[in-house]
Simulated scan of single mutants.
Amino acid sequence: MAWISGGCDPRRPLAVLRLPAVALALALLAAPPVLADQRDPALAPLFERLKRADAVEGPGIEDQIWAIWFRYPDRVVASLLDEGTVLMSRRRWAEALDRFDQIVARAPDFAEGWNKRATVRFLLDDLEGSVADIQRTLLLEPRHFGALAGLGQVYLRLERPAAALRAFQAALDLNPAMAGVRRQVEELRAWLDGSDI
Protein backbone atom coordinates (compact mmCIF):
# COMPACT_ATOMS: atom_id res chain seq x y z
CA MET A 1 0.00 0.00 0.00
CA ALA A 2 1.34 3.40 -0.76
CA TRP A 3 1.02 6.03 1.90
CA ILE A 4 2.15 9.61 1.89
CA SER A 5 2.97 9.58 5.61
CA GLY A 6 4.01 5.93 5.70
CA GLY A 7 7.21 6.25 3.72
CA CYS A 8 5.93 4.67 0.49
CA ASP A 9 5.17 7.24 -2.16
CA PRO A 10 2.09 6.37 -4.27
CA ARG A 11 3.64 8.34 -7.14
CA ARG A 12 6.81 6.28 -7.17
CA PRO A 13 5.62 3.94 -9.96
CA LEU A 14 4.77 7.02 -11.99
CA ALA A 15 8.49 7.83 -12.22
CA VAL A 16 8.50 5.65 -15.32
CA LEU A 17 5.86 7.88 -16.87
CA ARG A 18 8.16 10.91 -16.68
CA LEU A 19 10.60 9.43 -19.17
CA PRO A 20 10.24 10.67 -22.74
CA ALA A 21 8.10 8.24 -24.73
CA VAL A 22 10.91 7.29 -27.11
CA ALA A 23 13.37 6.59 -24.28
CA LEU A 24 10.75 4.51 -22.49
CA ALA A 25 9.99 2.51 -25.63
CA LEU A 26 13.68 1.85 -26.22
CA ALA A 27 14.19 0.84 -22.60
CA LEU A 28 11.29 -1.59 -22.79
CA LEU A 29 12.60 -3.12 -26.00
CA ALA A 30 16.11 -3.50 -24.58
CA ALA A 31 14.94 -4.91 -21.25
CA PRO A 32 15.20 -8.62 -20.60
CA PRO A 33 11.93 -10.56 -20.54
CA VAL A 34 9.80 -9.71 -17.55
CA LEU A 35 9.44 -12.61 -15.17
CA ALA A 36 6.62 -10.86 -13.33
CA ASP A 37 5.83 -9.07 -10.15
CA GLN A 38 6.43 -10.53 -6.70
CA ARG A 39 7.72 -13.84 -8.10
CA ASP A 40 10.74 -12.30 -9.80
CA PRO A 41 13.92 -14.00 -8.48
CA ALA A 42 15.72 -10.63 -8.60
CA LEU A 43 13.77 -9.61 -5.48
CA ALA A 44 15.53 -11.90 -2.99
CA PRO A 45 19.00 -10.34 -3.40
CA LEU A 46 17.46 -6.86 -3.43
CA PHE A 47 15.78 -7.51 -0.09
CA GLU A 48 19.07 -8.78 1.34
CA ARG A 49 20.80 -5.60 0.19
CA LEU A 50 17.94 -3.44 1.50
CA LYS A 51 18.33 -4.82 5.03
CA ARG A 52 22.01 -3.73 5.06
CA ALA A 53 21.64 -0.50 3.09
CA ASP A 54 22.41 2.90 4.52
CA ALA A 55 20.19 5.97 4.15
CA VAL A 56 21.81 6.85 0.82
CA GLU A 57 21.64 3.42 -0.85
CA GLY A 58 18.32 2.27 0.64
CA PRO A 59 15.91 4.43 -1.38
CA GLY A 60 17.48 3.32 -4.67
CA ILE A 61 17.09 -0.35 -3.75
CA GLU A 62 13.52 0.34 -2.63
CA ASP A 63 12.81 1.91 -6.03
CA GLN A 64 14.13 -1.22 -7.77
CA ILE A 65 11.82 -3.41 -5.68
CA TRP A 66 8.81 -1.20 -6.44
CA ALA A 67 9.65 -1.33 -10.15
CA ILE A 68 9.58 -5.14 -10.07
CA TRP A 69 6.38 -5.25 -8.02
CA PHE A 70 4.77 -2.91 -10.51
CA ARG A 71 5.42 -5.17 -13.53
CA TYR A 72 3.02 -7.76 -14.86
CA PRO A 73 3.41 -9.64 -18.15
CA ASP A 74 -0.23 -9.26 -19.20
CA ARG A 75 -0.49 -6.00 -21.16
CA VAL A 76 -4.12 -5.43 -20.20
CA VAL A 77 -3.26 -5.69 -16.50
CA ALA A 78 -0.22 -3.45 -16.94
CA SER A 79 -2.36 -0.86 -18.73
CA LEU A 80 -5.05 -0.99 -16.05
CA LEU A 81 -2.38 -0.54 -13.37
CA ASP A 82 -0.96 2.50 -15.14
CA GLU A 83 -4.44 3.99 -15.62
CA GLY A 84 -5.44 3.34 -12.02
CA THR A 85 -2.24 4.85 -10.68
CA VAL A 86 -2.70 7.98 -12.79
CA LEU A 87 -6.32 8.25 -11.65
CA MET A 88 -5.15 7.96 -8.03
CA SER A 89 -2.67 10.78 -8.55
CA ARG A 90 -5.58 12.88 -9.83
CA ARG A 91 -7.72 11.95 -6.80
CA ARG A 92 -10.30 10.22 -8.98
CA TRP A 93 -10.75 7.44 -6.44
CA ALA A 94 -13.88 5.76 -7.83
CA GLU A 95 -12.40 5.45 -11.31
CA ALA A 96 -9.11 4.17 -9.89
CA LEU A 97 -11.03 1.61 -7.83
CA ASP A 98 -12.73 0.38 -10.99
CA ARG A 99 -9.33 -0.24 -12.65
CA PHE A 100 -7.99 -2.08 -9.62
CA ASP A 101 -11.19 -4.15 -9.35
CA GLN A 102 -10.58 -5.23 -12.93
CA ILE A 103 -6.97 -6.12 -12.13
CA VAL A 104 -7.78 -8.35 -9.15
CA ALA A 105 -10.50 -10.08 -11.18
CA ARG A 106 -8.19 -10.66 -14.15
CA ALA A 107 -4.94 -11.33 -12.22
CA PRO A 108 -5.71 -12.52 -8.68
CA ASP A 109 -2.08 -13.66 -8.34
CA PHE A 110 -0.72 -10.10 -8.76
CA ALA A 111 0.11 -8.66 -5.34
CA GLU A 112 0.39 -5.05 -6.50
CA GLY A 113 -3.16 -5.09 -7.88
CA TRP A 114 -4.45 -5.93 -4.41
CA ASN A 115 -2.09 -3.42 -2.82
CA LYS A 116 -3.26 -0.58 -5.04
CA ARG A 117 -6.89 -1.44 -4.42
CA ALA A 118 -6.18 -1.47 -0.66
CA THR A 119 -4.81 2.06 -0.98
CA VAL A 120 -7.88 3.35 -2.82
CA ARG A 121 -10.22 1.62 -0.38
CA PHE A 122 -8.40 3.36 2.47
CA LEU A 123 -8.79 6.70 0.72
CA LEU A 124 -12.51 5.96 0.30
CA ASP A 125 -12.71 5.11 4.03
CA ASP A 126 -13.48 1.43 3.34
CA LEU A 127 -11.15 0.28 6.10
CA GLU A 128 -12.38 -3.32 6.27
CA GLY A 129 -11.97 -3.67 2.52
CA SER A 130 -8.52 -2.15 2.74
CA VAL A 131 -7.44 -4.62 5.44
CA ALA A 132 -8.80 -7.54 3.40
CA ASP A 133 -6.83 -6.40 0.34
CA ILE A 134 -3.68 -5.88 2.40
CA GLN A 135 -4.03 -9.40 3.77
CA ARG A 136 -4.30 -10.72 0.21
CA THR A 137 -1.26 -8.66 -0.81
CA LEU A 138 0.76 -10.10 2.07
CA LEU A 139 -0.38 -13.62 1.29
CA LEU A 140 1.05 -13.19 -2.21
CA GLU A 141 4.11 -11.13 -1.17
CA PRO A 142 4.91 -11.38 2.56
CA ARG A 143 7.81 -8.94 2.10
CA HIS A 144 5.56 -6.11 0.91
CA PHE A 145 6.76 -3.36 3.21
CA GLY A 146 4.40 -0.89 1.53
CA ALA A 147 1.37 -3.01 2.39
CA LEU A 148 2.60 -3.38 5.97
CA ALA A 149 3.08 0.38 6.28
CA GLY A 150 -0.42 0.82 4.87
CA LEU A 151 -1.80 -1.65 7.40
CA GLY A 152 -0.26 0.50 10.12
CA GLN A 153 -2.10 3.52 8.71
CA VAL A 154 -5.40 1.62 8.70
CA TYR A 155 -4.89 0.57 12.30
CA LEU A 156 -4.14 4.17 13.27
CA ARG A 157 -7.43 5.22 11.66
CA LEU A 158 -9.16 2.40 13.57
CA GLU A 159 -7.57 3.70 16.79
CA ARG A 160 -5.58 0.50 17.34
CA PRO A 161 -2.13 1.93 18.09
CA ALA A 162 -0.55 -1.32 19.33
CA ALA A 163 -1.56 -3.11 16.11
CA ALA A 164 -0.33 -0.12 14.08
CA LEU A 165 3.03 -0.31 15.85
CA ARG A 166 3.37 -4.02 15.03
CA ALA A 167 2.59 -3.40 11.35
CA PHE A 168 5.00 -0.47 11.11
CA GLN A 169 7.74 -2.45 12.86
CA ALA A 170 7.24 -5.37 10.46
CA ALA A 171 7.61 -2.93 7.54
CA LEU A 172 10.83 -1.54 9.05
CA ASP A 173 12.22 -5.03 9.59
CA LEU A 174 12.00 -5.50 5.83
CA ASN A 175 12.94 -1.98 4.80
CA PRO A 176 14.90 -0.01 7.40
CA ALA A 177 15.19 2.92 4.95
CA MET A 178 11.57 4.01 5.52
CA ALA A 179 12.21 7.22 7.48
CA GLY A 180 8.53 8.17 7.77
CA VAL A 181 7.63 4.76 9.16
CA ARG A 182 10.58 4.94 11.58
CA ARG A 183 9.26 8.27 12.93
CA GLN A 184 5.80 6.75 13.37
CA VAL A 185 7.27 3.80 15.26
CA GLU A 186 9.17 6.15 17.58
CA GLU A 187 6.08 8.30 18.19
CA LEU A 188 3.84 5.29 18.81
CA ARG A 189 6.33 3.70 21.20
CA ALA A 190 6.60 6.92 23.17
CA TRP A 191 2.83 7.29 23.26
CA LEU A 192 2.18 3.65 24.21
CA ASP A 193 4.83 3.77 26.96
CA GLY A 194 2.87 6.61 28.52
CA SER A 195 -0.58 5.04 28.11
CA ASP A 196 -2.50 2.20 29.73
CA ILE A 197 -2.57 0.12 26.52
Rank of each mutant, 00 (worst) to 15 (best):
L138H: 07
R157A: 12
G113Q: 15
D98P: 01
P10A: 10
D63C: 01
L139E: 13
R106E: 10
V22T: 04
Q38R: 12
H144M: 09
A36Y: 02
A78C: 03
R121Q: 15
A21M: 09
L87Y: 03
V120F: 06
R18Q: 11
Y72E: 09
A23I: 11
D37L: 12
D54E: 08
F122Y: 14
E83H: 07
L174K: 13
L127T: 11
R157P: 03
A31H: 10
A171N: 10
R182P: 00
L81M: 14
P41G: 01
R12M: 14
G6L: 05
A15S: 10
R18G: 13
R75T: 15
W114H: 15
T119D: 02
I61R: 02
R121Y: 02
V154D: 08
L158E: 12
P13L: 03
S89H: 14
R91I: 01
L28C: 11
V77Q: 06
L97Y: 06
W114P: 08
P13H: 07
A149H: 03
A55D: 12
V185M: 00
W69Y: 10
D54L: 04
L81G: 01
A31R: 15
Y72T: 07
L158N: 08
V86E: 14
P161I: 00
A25N: 07
G150N: 06
T137W: 04
Q38I: 11
R90K: 14
D101F: 07
V77M: 12
A23R: 03
T119Y: 01
P73V: 05
E141P: 00
A164C: 00
L29Y: 07
R160E: 14
A25M: 09
A30I: 02
L87M: 05
V34G: 08
A170I: 00
F145M: 09
Q153I: 11
V86R: 15
G146L: 06
A21L: 04
L140I: 13
I65L: 04
F168V: 00
A30M: 10
A163S: 06
L29F: 08
G129V: 08
A163P: 07
L97N: 10
P176W: 06
P20D: 14
G146N: 13
A23V: 09
R71K: 11
R92C: 05
